[in-house]
Simulated scan of single mutants.
Amino acid sequence: MNTQTNTPDYQECIQNAALAFLERHQAEHLNDISALLNRTINHLVSSFDVAESVAIKLTSLAHIELVEIAFRQRLDLDYSSATVVVIKDPIKGVCWSVPVSLIYERILNAPDNVRLRSANS
């Protein structure tokens, strides 16, 4: 096992690897978060030779970060209009201006859209 498991840089690197793994594979485990977490722990242990206890800790921290990322972006109603949606990420200090037509074209009207349903139904 790697002897650097107590250094902050090492742990941050492994936590980032866990976060990247969670982001890549979360869609495969939409209904079973424990399977995703276990898979991530196993990935850290096998790919990075991390002790299981460290992998559990860093996977848990990465999962918290993943949840925070998913909920920190906000719709900015003050700057949005009928044709443009403005989304802000206050932590990163960035915002995106997205045309509503692009949202419709790429998400709502996409052929593989099986998760979103019309609000009129």
Rank of each mutant, 00 (worst) to 15 (best):
P8W: 13
V54S: 07
K92E: 12
I56M: 08
S101C: 03
S34L: 14
V100A: 07
Q73A: 07
H25P: 03
P99T: 05
H29Y: 15
D49A: 04
S121C: 12
R72L: 03
E28I: 00
L44A: 03
E12M: 08
N2D: 15
L61H: 09
T59H: 01
Y79T: 00
S101Y: 06
S121Q: 13
A82S: 08
F48H: 08
N120C: 12
C13Y: 15
E52I: 12
P111Y: 07
R115C: 10
H25T: 13
G93R: 07
R117W: 06
A62H: 04
L102D: 09
A82H: 01
V84S: 04
E28L: 14
V94T: 12
K92H: 10
S60A: 02
A119Y: 05
E68N: 09
I91W: 09
D9R: 11
I56H: 01
E52N: 06
A70T: 03
V85A: 05
Y79F: 02
Q73I: 11
V45M: 00
A51K: 13
T59Q: 04
E23I: 05
A70S: 10
A51L: 10
A55V: 11
V98C: 02
R115V: 12
N42C: 04
N42W: 02
I41P: 02
N42A: 10
A51E: 10
N120F: 13
L19K: 15
Q4M: 15
I33E: 14
S118P: 05
H29E: 13
S80I: 02
T59E: 02
R72V: 11
P111T: 08
L116W: 14
N109W: 07
T59V: 04
D76P: 00
V98F: 00
E105R: 13
S118N: 15
L36M: 10
S46P: 01
S53P: 01
R74L: 10
V100S: 03
V86W: 04
I107E: 04
I56F: 02
Y104S: 05
A62S: 00
I69R: 12
A18C: 07
I56V: 13
E28Y: 00
H29G: 04
V114A: 11
N42D: 11
Q26V: 10
N31R: 15
Q4K: 15
N16T: 15
F21D: 07
N38V: 03
H43V: 05
A110M: 04
V86M: 01
E23T: 13
E12W: 05
D112G: 08
H43T: 08
P99Y: 09
A35H: 07
E23V: 04
S34F: 13
S34W: 14
P111E: 14
L37V: 13
K88D: 04
G93C: 05
A20T: 15
G93S: 04
A18R: 10
S53T: 12
Q15L: 09
E23W: 07
A55M: 09
K92Y: 10
A17F: 15
H43G: 01
E12S: 12
A18Y: 15
V50Y: 03
